[in-house]
Simulated assay, not measured.
Amino acid sequence: MKIYTRTGDEGQTSVIGARVRKDDLRVEAYGTIDELNSFVGQAISVLAKDTAVDWTDLLEHLTLVQHELFDCGSDLCYASPDPEKMKVTAEMTARLEGWIDAYDAQTPPIEKFILPGGSEPASLLHVCRTVCRRAERIVVSLAAEQPCPDEPRKYLNRLSDFFFAAARAANARLGLTDAEYERSAKVFRRR
């Protein structure tokens, strides 16, 4: 099998049920999710090399997230989504909430916005968070213009929160304090 097909040379590609321009919002949405998945892979690579800290839980969670990001992309590539064929579920989003709570419990309370960074793992997880937010914004735009399943949008919304909590937990595990944004008002409260 050849990797190249030449079918996209004129700026079009196939989604399930249609041929569209490569800059179609549907293609932009699942393309951005693919970009996010690459950054998650980079975070996994960095964490896997660090043997000074036990990253087992985070590595397992991030690996599962990679598979679920493929599910999101799969659901979004239908020109006319078929509810029977959708892979992303409300249970996947609920599981993220449990992970968020667990990682949040490992961190000191925050009241203000924080600057992305600290450790290399936290920095990469913040990159994942921001790319995830962009993917979510594109899915919102897609849903305003074309048929689009709801669950991938909800999943991406929660996933960005997961990356935030995981980034903070990574810094905490490494003994680093998150840097607060100096001019931030108090915006966070522990529930």
Rank of each mutant, 00 (worst) to 15 (best):
S38T: 14
P81T: 01
Q12E: 12
P81Y: 03
T177A: 08
H126C: 10
T51F: 08
V65A: 11
E28G: 07
R189V: 13
R26P: 10
E91W: 01
E120S: 12
L142H: 02
E120L: 15
D101E: 14
E60R: 15
P108C: 00
R183D: 14
K87D: 00
V88L: 04
F113V: 09
V40W: 10
D161M: 02
N37W: 06
V88T: 11
S14V: 11
A166P: 10
G117W: 04
D101I: 02
V27S: 02
D54M: 12
S119N: 08
A185M: 13
R190H: 09
A79D: 13
R137F: 01
A170D: 13
D161F: 00
L142F: 01
A105H: 11
H67Y: 10
L76W: 01
D50P: 11
Q12T: 13
V140L: 07
R137H: 05
L69G: 07
D150L: 02
A166L: 05
D82F: 00
I114Q: 03
I114M: 03
D23E: 11
K49I: 05
G41T: 01
V140S: 02
G8Q: 03
A135T: 08
G117V: 11
R183V: 10
Q66S: 10
Y155V: 00
P152M: 05
F188T: 06
R95V: 00
P83M: 11
G17E: 00
E97Q: 14
L76D: 05
D150S: 08
R191L: 14
F39S: 14
Q42R: 08
L115S: 04
E60D: 15
R134G: 06
D104N: 13
F70N: 03
V140M: 06
E84K: 05
I3V: 14
K154G: 03
D75E: 03
A185F: 10
P116A: 13
L76M: 09
D178Q: 03
R173H: 13
V127R: 07
E60Q: 15
P116R: 09
